[in-house]
Design a protein around this nucleic acid. Structure first.
Lengths: 110, 110
DNA sequence: CCATATATGTGGCATCACCACATATGGCAG
DNA sequence: CTGCCATATGTGGTGATGCCACATATATGG
């Protein structure tokens, strides 16, 4: 498993990117992050739900409760226009970050 | 400037990588990280010096004071054998982390 | 009937980068 | 010669964020 520290701040990017494709609920997001990263990234419920609340407070995502028979209630989130802007900006920042790390520490050709 | 959160944990990798090349002192490390990353990464004194102490306590680097006339005292650090092992392992982890982020969030082709 | 997966959430803790500040020396401009 | 900047190392307290343990509630399968 990866070190705790290096994961900090990545959850926000991952959530926004997954919600860009379609609205999803919290549990689905945690499973998707784990499966698509092949188990490398795993964000726990205690990290994820408070983060979703913060993202909604900041207006980057919008949630609504969906109740269906034979299912526990789910809160589906969709990305907002502002969220898309932030995602686009974060993708650039992460790319820049990766490039900088590679330049200094030679991760790519290690 | 990059977001605070995404930098967390990267300082350790950067320091070990720079010390792999040759022994250096704290101030030099902070300047090197800033210049080689073209200003994208900037670790402040208040982050760097405590981290150097922690790395030395963990046996990954070893420091010694060097006093020269016409210079303030400097503490030069060299990477230890154990530090090289950890660096190698961290390079792998970061590479894995980058790949995972790219798979989930599509940073590479954004 | 009980364990597991689904589904959301809280309280307290650890980690780690930051700001503000402290200390000390050399060199340069005014 | 005085003030300011770069060099050089360090501390105390704060904020952000992920984690563990725990709590709650429903559907499904053995």
């Amino acid at each position: 498993m990866l070190e705790l520290a290096m994961k900090k701040g990545s959850a926000e990017l991952l959530i926004l990117a997954l919600l860009e494709q379609q609205p999803r609920h919290g549990y689905e997001l945690s499973k998707l992050i784990a499966s698509r990263s092949k188990g490398v990234l795993t964000f726990h419920a205690a990290s994820l739900y408070p983060l979703l609340v913060r993202l909604e407070e900041r207006g980057l995502i919008a949630g609504r409760w969906v109740e269906k028979a034979g299912q526990r209630r789910r809160r589906y989130y969709r990305i907002t226009t502002e969220g898309k802007d932030v995602l686009s900006s974060q993708r650039r920042s992460w790319k820049e970050f990766f490039a900088a790390i590679n330049r200094v520490a030679g991760v790519q050709n290690a």
